[in-house]
Amino acid sequence: MTEDPFVAHRGLLFTVAYELLGSAADAEDVLQESWLRWADVDRTQVRDPRAYLVRTVTRQALNRLRTLSRSREDYVGEWLPEPLLTSPDVAEDVELAESVSIAMLTVLETLGPTERAVFVLREVFELPYGEIAEATGKSAATVRQIARRAREHVTARRPRVRVSRAEQRAVVERFLLALRTGRLQEMLEIMAPDVVLIADGGGVVAAVTVPVHGAGPVAELLARANQAVASLETTTVWLNGALAGRIEFDGEPAAVSLAVEDGRITGVYVVRNPHKLTRLDAPAELTR
């Protein structure tokens, strides 16, 4: 008996939905909705199940994204994507790892829903313009224009330099050590002058509600965080295709992802909202 195409491509479909939504919980809801639609389809009329399913998931994710974009306007503080525990294998696919990084997903949040879908389907999954047009309800010519604008928008904001796994590990471990010990000078030395820290507490736990800019202010904030708790434990984990940190502030978890360029930290992304920390125990299946 052959495996159902939806089951066979589930990892891909989840990845598409997650990249469009930045939320594993919403991505799972989209997959459930798409599965129900797939169950009612006459399979004999589907020539390419993979393409059909990607289109279905994209449409459902776009519907969800348009709804979420309104609710996220009322979110308390900064909204960051939901971090996912991933296996080290995800990092082997450099393009995939970059596309699901917290830094990139944060950039994608600055795109409109259709622009985001077009960018992800074209740049990450390399779908033909015709298929993207079907998935988004636009003409192929319009999709080409949207793709160009979205590419320019993302290029201007994405991390500019790819770093090796060894360099990422060295910076992450040095950062976590500085955080545990509260050494302000050590933090300053590993941060770029224009580093930005973004924290997401969702109004549920304490977190700065606006981005913090500059090595001095960021280092001081992290040093104060160390001083404000009785215990602070850190471990290195693979999050969204890159080495990152899992932190326990007096037993309360947080996930910290770092953007690194030329051996120094340019972005610190701290997720403390407990509703976004439910996927840190089992690796998510992300694939292209």
Rank of each mutant, 00 (worst) to 15 (best):
P193S: 15
G112H: 09
E98V: 11
L105N: 04
V57Q: 03
V57S: 05
R169W: 00
I102C: 10
L105D: 05
G182I: 11
A117D: 02
E173G: 14
L197P: 00
R169H: 07
A97R: 01
V195Q: 06
V57K: 00
S69Q: 13
T142V: 09
V163C: 13
M104Y: 06
L96K: 04
E92H: 13
E98P: 01
P83C: 11
R162H: 11
P83R: 00
F125C: 10
A91L: 01
G137R: 08
L68M: 12
V54A: 06
L53T: 02
T181Q: 10
L84M: 08
Q185C: 14
S87C: 12
A61W: 06
E82W: 09
D93M: 13
P128W: 03
T142W: 08
D74R: 15
L105G: 05
A91E: 02
A133D: 01
R149V: 03
D194I: 14
T136P: 02
V107M: 06
M104H: 08
L96E: 02
F125H: 11
E95N: 13
E73V: 14
P128K: 04
E189V: 14
V118R: 00
R64G: 01
R157P: 00
R157H: 12
V120A: 08
S71N: 12
V120E: 02
R157S: 08
R116A: 02
E126Q: 15
Q145P: 07
A170K: 07
E131M: 06
L85Q: 07
M104N: 05
Y129E: 11
Y129G: 13
E189P: 12
F125D: 01
A147C: 11
G112V: 02
S101T: 05
L111N: 03
P83A: 05
R169Q: 12
M191H: 06
G130K: 07
E109L: 08
G182Q: 07
A147N: 13
V54W: 01
A140R: 14
A91V: 07
M104C: 11
V163A: 12
L121R: 03
L111H: 07
V124P: 02
L179T: 03
R180D: 11
S139M: 09
E186Q: 15
L65M: 10
G112D: 05
S99I: 03
A117K: 03
S99Q: 03
E152V: 15
I190Y: 02
L65F: 11
V57Y: 03
T110V: 03
A140M: 10
V163T: 13
A192M: 11
E109F: 11
L176F: 14
V143A: 00
A192K: 01
R64F: 07
W79R: 09
G130P: 09
A97T: 01
T114M: 06
R149L: 08
L188E: 05
L121E: 00
G130I: 02
W79M: 10
R162M: 13
R64S: 04
Y129R: 10
S101R: 01
L105R: 04
A91G: 12
V172C: 10
E92P: 12
A135C: 08
L80D: 00
A156K: 15
V196D: 00
E126A: 15
Q60W: 07
T114S: 10
E167P: 05
S71P: 10
V143H: 04
E123F: 14
E109T: 05
